[in-house]
C-alpha cells in the first residue's frame, strides 16, 4: 500500500496501480469535501435559504405557481418562473401597468387593503418609522383556529424572505409559516395581538422594491378565491367527486371542525410546503 509496508515493492505494477487507486480515492474525497465547503459557503453568504425556497418552489404543483398578473386578470395565463420574487422579474413592469380584469366580490374573509399579502398566507403592513408588521391572513387563521403551541424567533434575529419565520402546532401537525419579508426581528406578538412579528426591513421603506413581491388589490381577491376553491375540493368527503359550494363563508377553526381531512397535504399546500 505504502512504501515501507510489508508487500510493497518499487515496481512499475505497484507504483502505477497504487497511483491510480489513490488518484481515484482523492477524486472521491475531493468531491465530498467540495460539496461540504460549498454548502458551508452557501450558509455563510445566506444563499442557502434562497436556494431552499427555489427548490421548494420548483416542486410546487402548477396551480400554486400562477403569476400575480393572472390572478388579477391582467394576463390570461402565466406561470411564475421567478419563485414569486417580482423584484427580479423582467416582465413585472410590463404587466403591472395593464388594467386588472378580475371580479372583486365578497370572500367572507377580511383582507384589509392597507396590507400586502404573501402566498404563504401572511400579511405585511408598513407602519410609521419604516417598521413592518407581519401577521397571519384571514384564511390561515380560519383554517388553524387556535394553535396548540407557537414557536417564535428571537428578537434581534435576522430573517430571510421565504425561510421559516415561526412554527405552530395544531392537532399534531407542524405548520411552518414562511417569512414574507427579510429583515431583523424587532418585536414578537401572537394570535391575541393580531400580529406575530415586527420586522425592521433590510431595504428602506422608501425603496419601491421593498414590498413589490407581495400581492395587493385585485390580485388578492383572485388568489384567495382560488385558495378557497382548493380548500373546498381538498376537504370534500372521501370518495366524492369534486364540487364547489355555491355561497357560504369559511367557518373558523376548520382543523377542529374537519379533523378527518388530510391536513398534512392541505397545510402543505396552504403554507407552500413540499
Amino acid at each position: 500500500m505504502f512504501p515501507g509496508i510489508d508487500g510493497f515493492h518499487w515496481t512499475a505494477a505497484h507504483v502505477i496501480f497504487l497511483s491510480l487507486f489513490f488518484a481515484v480515492v482523492m477524486t472521491i474525497v475531493a468531491t465530498v469535501v467540495s460539496a461540504v465547503r460549498r454548502t458551508a459557503r452557501d450558509f455563510q453568504t445566506k444563499r442557502a435559504i434562497d436556494f431552499c425556497w427555489k427548490a421548494d418552489f420548483a416542486e410546487l404543483p402548477e396551480p400554486e405557481r400562477r403569476c400575480r398578473h393572472e390572478l388579477a386578470g391582467r394576463v390570461m395565463s402565466r406561470t411564475c418562473d421567478n419563485a414569486f420574487d417580482c423584484r427580479q422579474c423582467s416582465k413585472y413592469s410590463q404587466f403591472a401597468v395593464l388594467p386588472a380584469r378580475g371580479t372583486v366580490h365578497s370572500l367572507g374573509l377580511d383582507y384589509p387593503e392597507d396590507r400586502f399579502y404573501h402566498r404563504g398566507h401572511t400579511w405585511v403592513k408598513l407602519e410609521e418609522g419604516g417598521i413592518l408588521t407581519v401577521g397571519l391572513d384571514a384564511l390561515a387563521e380560519h383554517v388553524i383556529g387556535q394553535a396548540d403551541s407557537i414557536k417564535m424567533p428571537a428578537i434581534g434575529s435576522d430573517i430571510e424572505i421565504n425561510e421559516t419565520a415561526w412554527r405552530m402546532k395544531k392537532n399534531g401537525n407542524e405548520i411552518r409559516v414562511r417569512a414574507p419579508i427579510e429583515g431583523k426581528v424587532v418585536g414578537i406578538g401572537g394570535p391575541t395581538d393580531g400580529w406575530y412579528l415586527k420586522i425592521s426591513p433590510r431595504l428602506s421603506a422608501q425603496n419601491p422594491a421593498l414590498l413589490r413581491h407581495l400581492l395587493r388589490g385585485p390580485e388578492v381577491y383572485g388568489w384567495v378565491s382560488r385558495e378557497l376553491e382548493r380548500l373546498q375540493v381538498e376537504l370534500r368527503e372521501p370518495n366524492t367527486p369534486p364540487s364547489l359550494a355555491d355561497g357560504g363563508v369559511l367557518m373558523p377553526g376548520l382543523m377542529d371542525a374537519v379533523p378527518e381531512a388530510d391536513w398534512d397535504s392541505v397545510l402543505a399546500e396552504t403554507f407552500l410546503e413540499v
Partner: peptide
Amino acid sequence: PSMLVFEHQLHKL
C-alpha cells in the same frame, strides 16, 4: 436546509 443545500451541491458534482 443544510440537507437540501448539501444535496444540491453534491448533485452538481
